[in-house]
């Protein structure tokens, strides 16, 4: 469903990605793991159009989307819940979700998807008129996921949804994500520092190191690989 071919990205003089390739099959969950500065966020940014690749190609659902601006990529059904969540702190929970549906015109669909998001994260419903900036980190993460869903994605990318969130809540959020993937066969591309969890829920994984793909395999194979165990799973 998503094919990244030989993608290179530069920030000025720094080369963040040196020609990486990866693919996410329809309905799959693929995870991208790697240390700080490996280029995980940059990969997602390039896919969603936030940074322009220096070279390489990104093909989504058979269509070359390389170099398209972000708002057009969202329109094609590719949603990105960014690093640091970036919920609109000055808007209420409801306004954030409605902005997620910025491109959706069908009021009935919007209403039913709102219900779905609230069923998934009941805490958001209790805080419907609260400014998003005053939510806890975990609630903001739920909101970021909810906002991404409101764009009616056919493909969802998440950048470190577990960051700064208590382990129990992380489990909860991941369970919801896996349900989404099952029920809607919504493909997920998941960036995670928490390699344990990521390799548990995903079907395939890629290990990035300094802008290159170091390893890629089925997740259960990576889980048992000594290299991954040593570097990312704490032995």
């Amino acid at each position: 469903m998503l094919e990244v071919q030989n993608l290179s990205v530069r920030y000025g003089a720094i080369t963040a990605l040196h020609g990486i390739s990866l693919s996410v099959p329809a309905g799959g969950i693929v995870t991208l793991i790697g240390g700080n500065g490996a280029g995980k966020t940059t990969t997602l940014r390039a896919i969603s159009g936030m940074v322009r690749p220096a070279s390489g190609r990104i093909v989504f659902d058979g269509r070359d989307i390389t170099g398209l601006p972000p708002h057009e990529i969202v329109r094609l059904g590719l949603a990105h819940s960014p690093e640091g969540r970036l919920v609109f702190a000055n808007l209420t929970v409801m306004e954030n979700l409605r902005m997620g549906a910025y491109l959706q015109r069908d009021a009935r669909w919007i209403a039913s998807e709102l219900e779905h998001v609230f069923a998934m994260f009941p805490r958001l419903k209790e805080r419907i008129d609260q400014a998003a900036g005053t939510l806890s980190g975990g609630e903001q993460q739920m909101l970021a996921i909810g906002r991404a869903l409101m764009s009616r994605p056919r493909f969802l990318m998440l950048d470190e949804p577990s960051l700064g969130i208590a382990p129990l809540l992380v489990k909860e959020i991941f369970a919801r994500l896996v349900e989404l993937n099952r029920e809607r066969s919504l493909p997920l591309l998941l960036v995670e520092q928490n390699a344990h969890l990521a390799l548990e829920v995903s079907t395939h994984g890629y290990v990035l190191e300094t802008g290159r793909v170091l390893l890629s395999d089925r997740s259960e194979v990576l889980r048992d690989s000594p290299q991954v165990r040593g570097a990312y799973l704490g032995g």
């Binding site: 159009g49 936030m50 601006p69 972000p70 969202v74 329109r75 970036l86 609109f88 902005m99 910025y102």
Partner: peptide
């Protein structure tokens, strides 16, 4: 950035 990611031009 967040605005463009929800599809705002």
């Amino acid at each position: 950035t967040a605005a463009s990611l929800v599809g705002i031009d």
